[in-house]
Amino acid sequence: MSSHEHHVIDLKYLLGAAAGLIILTILTVGASYVEIPRPFDLLTAMALAFGKATLVAAVFMGLIWDKKINTMALLFSLLFFFLMIGITLLDTLFRDRPFWIYN
C-alpha cells in the first residue's frame, strides 16, 4: 500500500484532449450550418457532444487511470438519466394514441 502513487497525467494527454475538444467544437458548430435532415442533425450534434464528454471524463477527470468504481458511478448516473427520460417519453410521445388492445 505504501508504494501507492497518484497517477500524474502526462502533459501530452492533457494538451491532446484540449486540442481534440476544440476540433470537436468546431465540427459541432460546422455541422449546424450543414443541412442535415431531422432527426439526424440532432443525432450528429449529440454524438459529437458525447465524444467531447468522453474526452473530458476520460482524460481531464482522469478516469482512464482511476479506480473503476468512479467510472461506474458516472455510468450509473447516465443509466438512470436515460431511464428517466426513456420512460417519461413512453408517456409524452404516446399521449393521444390509444393502445391497440383496446380497439
Binding site: 458516472l74 448516473s77 447516465l78 438512470f80 428517466m84
Partner: peptide, 17 residues
Amino acid sequence: KLGMWIFLVTEVLFFGG
C-alpha cells in the same frame, strides 16, 4: 474522491430533470 464522484452523480441527475 469517491465521495466527490457520487456528488457528481447527483449533479447529473439534478440537471437531468
